[in-house]
Design a protein around this nucleic acid. Structure first.
Lengths: 161, 161
DNA sequence: TAAGGATCATTTGCACAGGAATGAGCTGGC
DNA sequence: GCCAGCTCATTCCTGTGCAAATGATCCTTA
């Protein structure tokens, strides 16, 4: 039996298995905090988009709109910082809100670099609807948790930011 | 008092303030689970990219590579399900791994629809380095938490997926 | 007041993320 | 054995997310 081909397949498989085990050394990617946060975020985003179909707002658009309503008048960069979006990101988000006439942009005569954003009447009305939907979305997202667990989660997430 | 223009400015401001408060009705977007998860994810992603500069892998590329190494051979769709990425997303991720010769793609003669992916030697070597970096990344991400809090967080995230 | 450094907004480029549509191929039930 | 319905991979589209570069403007300080 000079060519034991019948054993070559299991043998190479055994080697490959050993290699994978030694390479990974017990590392389980689906148990890592990053993987779990990405998945939890995916689930939340799906719930959000489903619960916000009437308002047709994405999570970032909703956040930006709410902050504009809350502040009344705010520059674009400042809004970005409050909403946790960098200038390149907030630019696109604001453009989409402008396209839908949910906010207005005016020049600031005191600082010609900046743009001042403010909510429109349409934006205020939509924000009111959206907040109602958002409360349901938060509830649906946290549905698998008990009240005590919800408090724990929010507290832990705060510590991570 | 048919034209109380002298009061219109403060009055409209008062109305606007009232409106914002009544529109939002106590809703604080930065205290919502979605906002906090987005921020926590942003922080983790920044830590990840910083800690993975040597391997030049994004979180999704890392996850996909690790699963390919772990399984040895896997179809692209199956990999996507394990790595929590839809077909449109996993396609681009796998393409970038192929471009860097970290994985190979072969046809499956038994099912001509599917693509079978397997790690290359380069991929195995890089995966070994990347796992070392990933352990440090997880540690850095969870650094603000005590060991007990870390267990709580992972447990809570599991319940949300 | 002139210069240097900071800030604001924009653009480009790359990488996820998912919905929708498409074409190829497989499979189960009749 | 055939067809309906499923799965697999791809493409297109819209939308985040961030780094880097740019130009305009502001501000501080010498």
């Amino acid at each position: 039996m000079r060519h034991p081909d019948i054993h070559s397949q299991p043998l190479s498989k055994a080697i490959k298995t050993t290699r994978a085990a030694s390479v990974l050394d017990g590392y389980a990617v689906e148990e890592q905090v990053g993987f779990l946060m990405r998945r939890a975020n995916q689930r939340h985003t799906a719930i959000f988009l489903d619960g916000m179909v009437a308002a047709e707002l994405t999570p970032t658009q909703f956040t930006a709109l709410i902050k504009v309503v809350e502040l009344g008048r705010v520059t674009q960069n400042h809004l970005g910082r409050l909403a946790a979006m960098d200038p390149a990101t907030i630019q696109g988000v604001v453009r989409r809100l402008l396209d839908r006439d949910l906010v207005t942009r005016t020049d600031d005569p005191l600082d010609r670099r900046t743009i001042v954003l403010a909510p429109t009447q349409v934006g205020l009305t939509l924000a009111a609807q959206a907040v109602v939907a958002a409360r349901r979305i938060t509830e649906a997202t946290l549905d698998p948790l008990t009240p005590e667990e919800r408090r724990q989660l929010l507290s832990l997430l705060h510590k991570l930011c």
